[in-house]
């Protein structure tokens, strides 16, 4: 398994709401977890309408780490993505 296959394997196992961060030691897989904190967001649509609403704040929680992407994929396969 090369790095591309490993990344695609992680994607198919863990779907979305995750991030793979490059570090000095290798790669960290983290899951986004919703917190109680709320943040105000202001968006302008292509029609020019401006809406303001509150969204939940998320934090990235470390789940697994490994020196290479194939090793990270193997770890996640045995431990799960959460």
């Amino acid at each position: 398994m090369d790095a591309t296959e490993a990344a695609d394997k992680i994607r198919s196992m863990c779907f979305t709401e995750f991030a793979i961060t490059r570090t000095n030691e290798g790669y960290v897989f983290g899951r986004y977890i919703r917190t109680d904190e709320r943040r105000k967001v202001r968006v302008e649509s292509s029609t020019g309408q401006v809406s303001e609403f509150e969204v939940s704040a998320y934090v990235l929680q470390k789940v697994a780490e490994a020196p290479t992407l194939p090793e990270l994929a193997d770890k996640l396969e045995s431990s799960g993505c959460k």
């Binding site: 990344a7 994607r11 979305t16 995750f18 991030a19 793979i20 961060t21 490059r22 570090t23």
Partner: peptide, 12 residues
């Protein structure tokens, strides 16, 4: 990293 950053992959 030479400029003090790193990178992150996400499925968007």
């Amino acid at each position: 990293s030479v400029r003090g950053y790193t990178y992150q992959f996400e499925v968007t």
